[in-house]
Simulated assay, not measured.
Amino acid sequence: MKQIAVFSDVHANLPALEAVLEDIAQRNIQEVYCLGDLVDFAPWGNEVIEVIRSRGIPCLMGNHDERIAFGHPVIPLPHHDETETAHRQTAIAYSKECITPANKEWLATLPKQISFTHEGYRVQLVHGSTRSNEEYIYVNHPEEDLEKMFRDVQADTIIMGHTHLSYHRITRNGYHAVNCGAVGRSKEADRAATYSIISLTAEGPTIKIVKLPYDNIQVANAIYQSKIPDFYGHFLLGK
């Protein structure tokens, strides 16, 4: 059996990342992947990057990583109101100011996708979708299009992040779509640091979604004491 841990969307939340990595270590899982979005919304962007780099964890380029690495402008999202859009622009500007040149250079080298095969079973890792690191694939995504993505990359399982909402969905033809949730800025009611464990055998995958508590009050207070908008501290506390 091959066992891997996959996490995504740390968003500069070091305490949440530490909780996830400690849990993975306690389970003695040796193969670990990150699907990107290491930066923005909490104060520890450089520290998070340095943890991933120092541990040699293979990592994808999330859309936030790409924006910080290359200085791309912030484009308003249709599901954000004017208030959240303004807060988002301020938070991303903070990252652009604070992330070191060396860490920006490293972010620029990250791949958009990773794939591997175990006993003929192919797994594709993406941030948003197989087409873009900015595309949102929710649990209710149209079945026909979802299966087309599997066929296009010839994968049996696709593991995603980006939406900050975890799920495991099996399509009518037996493909496994997994969203591993978010480590640092979960949009689920519990706000837990969330990741996935995938166990691969000759019979196929077993998927486990793991939710961990962490000191979100500490993170919120750190946000309040920084130039990052209080909006993101309130979000972590469910306000």
Rank of each mutant, 00 (worst) to 15 (best):
Q26N: 15
G120V: 11
Q26E: 15
Y138R: 02
A12I: 11
E31D: 06
P142D: 08
T83L: 08
H168K: 03
G120Q: 10
H176R: 02
I228Q: 04
A93F: 01
C34H: 13
G161R: 08
Q26L: 15
A222P: 04
F7K: 11
P73N: 12
D9L: 03
R172K: 06
R131Q: 05
V20W: 11
Y214V: 12
V48E: 04
L125F: 14
P205R: 00
E188A: 11
I223Y: 00
V6Q: 10
D23M: 13
R53C: 06
I209R: 08
L200F: 01
E31I: 04
D40R: 01
A42V: 01
E97C: 06
V183L: 13
Y175F: 09
V219C: 03
M1G: 07
H168V: 09
Y214I: 11
S132H: 12
V39K: 08
L35F: 14
E119L: 09
G204L: 06
L146M: 13
Q113C: 14
I29P: 07
L14W: 10
Y167S: 03
H176P: 02
G128R: 03
N28F: 14
I52W: 09
Y121C: 03
R151A: 10
Y175W: 02
F70Y: 14
E31K: 03
C34V: 12
N103C: 10
S186N: 11
E18P: 00
A155D: 02
K187V: 05
Y138M: 04
Y33Q: 08
I209N: 09
T194V: 15
T171D: 01
T201C: 06
E188I: 11
H141F: 12
M61S: 05
L35I: 13
R151H: 08
K239S: 04
